[in-house]
Amino acid sequence: MTKQLNKIYAIKTIALVAQEMGEDEDWLNEIIEEMEPEDGLIWVYGPDGKGTAAFSDFGVENLEDIIRERRHLKK
């Protein structure tokens, strides 16, 4: 039996992704309600129990797709 290994070696927090994209972090937090772990969304928790959204590279790509779709629908 072959063991499946996680191939994600790094993730970016939603704060960093918002900064890199030039987007509002609060708006991105609304958008990610549509995303699932299969979409590259990962929740990271600290010792205080508070969590923050983070994304694999695949997750950032999916988030960009959702943003494009949202902006296209507004037109």
Rank of each mutant, 00 (worst) to 15 (best):
D48W: 11
Y45P: 03
I31V: 06
I11A: 07
G22H: 02
A15L: 09
K12Y: 11
R68N: 15
K3T: 15
Y45W: 13
D24V: 11
I42C: 00
R70E: 10
N29R: 12
T52H: 08
I66S: 07
K12W: 08
H72Q: 14
E30Q: 05
E38N: 04
K50C: 14
I31R: 03
D57N: 03
I11Y: 06
K50N: 13
I8Q: 00
Q4N: 13
E38G: 10
R70F: 13
A10S: 09
W43H: 06
D26C: 11
K75T: 07
M1G: 14
E20V: 00
F58N: 12
L41F: 04
E30S: 10
N29G: 09
E69R: 15
L28Y: 01
D39L: 02
I67C: 02
E61K: 01
E36P: 01
N62K: 13
A53D: 00
N6I: 13
M35V: 01
K12L: 08
D24I: 07
N6E: 09
K75N: 11
K75Y: 03
V17K: 05
E23N: 08
T13N: 06
A18C: 05
L28I: 01
P47H: 14
H72S: 15
A54Y: 00
V44W: 12
A54C: 04
L41I: 09
L41P: 02
I67A: 03
D57M: 05
L28N: 01
I32R: 02
T52R: 15
F55R: 00
L16H: 09
E30T: 11
M35S: 08
Y45N: 07
R68G: 14
D26H: 12
V60S: 03
E30P: 02
K3H: 15
I66A: 12
D24K: 03
G40C: 02
M1W: 15
A53Q: 00
G49I: 03
D57L: 04
D48M: 07
D39S: 07
Y9T: 15
E69F: 14
E23V: 11
I8P: 02
S56F: 01
K50F: 14
Y9N: 07
F55S: 00
D65T: 13
P47N: 12
N6P: 07
Q4R: 11
R70N: 07
I32P: 06
Y9V: 10
D57E: 14
T52Y: 13
D39V: 02
E23P: 07
I67D: 04
I14Y: 08
W27C: 06
E36R: 08
K74G: 12
I66Y: 03
D65G: 12
I66G: 04
T52I: 10
E69Y: 14
D39M: 00
E38V: 11
D24Y: 10
A53P: 00
T13Q: 10
K12F: 04
D39P: 05
T2I: 14
K75P: 08
A10P: 04
A18P: 00
E34S: 05
I32V: 10
I42T: 06
V60K: 06
G46D: 04
D65Q: 14
E30F: 02
E23D: 11
E33Y: 08
K74H: 10
Q4S: 15
A15R: 05
K12A: 11
I66E: 11
L16R: 13
T2K: 14
Q19I: 03
V17A: 03
E38Y: 04
I67K: 04
Y45V: 09
K74R: 08
D26K: 13
F58P: 05
E69D: 15
R71V: 12
